[in-house]
Write a protein that binds this DNA or RNA. Structure first.
Lengths: 113, 113
DNA sequence: TTAATATGCAACCTTTAGGTTGCGTGTCGA
DNA sequence: TCGACACGCAACCTAAAGGTTGCATATTAA
């Protein structure tokens, strides 16, 4: 039984999403935004070892992955988290996990018969 | 309400896990293993644009993230997927997604009151 | 109006990720 | 036993990731 392309396409699409999640600074930015829900670039840079520009780059990556959204208000750029995307990623992983679980179960059944 | 450290630690721990998932070659390796369940390095390298050594490096990264496990049998190194890990990652994401959802709901309620 | 604030943009640097080639070692099968 | 097979290890290369400094621009508040 071949894995259907639907699953694969969706999974491959998520590669950049996982890559965006695969950095501690970005994860902590996401967590920080998850708490406060709205923060400017300067605010998000405070108390961190990196410069504002470095943080801005990370935010850009998160935004490209639709994990975060920035809205200009006056002279500041306010960012907030995009829960739908992370939810989708979670479900995508879960689907694969289930599929793998099933495959392993089939193998096990085959071997043990 | 501050995010508890439990959640953060677990999330930070998953950074390398997400990084491991954030590469198309590795995702496709995972999918291939998900189908067949047992494959040698040479088998996994066949039909791919990269060399065996490149694939081996990817498998090492997957193994370091506990997404895959290699067992030596004779002269070949057989790899199989580790569904528990991916399941854990999915649940971790889901927990964060839920947390974010709650935070957004609270903010919304606060703003609209 | 003007100084301070918040950001954007671009050039540049250093480390690492992904990949290769080359070669040595253990294992299987005829 | 001995060639073919599967793999490991190490050196090396290139592009991209993560980070910096410097400067320009828009916006706010006094």
């Amino acid at each position: 039984m071949k894995t259907n392309n639907q699953t694969w396409n969706q999974f491959a699409k998520n590669a950049s999403l996982f890559a965006a999640l695969g950095d501690e600074t970005r994860l902590s930015l996401l967590l920080q935004l998850g708490e406060g829900n709205l923060a400017s670039i300067t605010q998000l840079s405070e108390g961190r070892p990196q410069t504002r520009q470095a943080i801005r780059k990370h935010l850009q990556i998160l935004e490209d992955a639709y994990l975060v959204r920035g809205v200009r208000r006056g002279r500041e750029n306010l960012f907030q988290v995009e829960p739908k995307t992370i939810e989708a990623a979670s479900q995508s992983l879960e689907a694969i996990a289930k599929q793998w679980g099933d495959a392993l179960a089939r193998l096990k059944a085959f071997v043990e018969q």
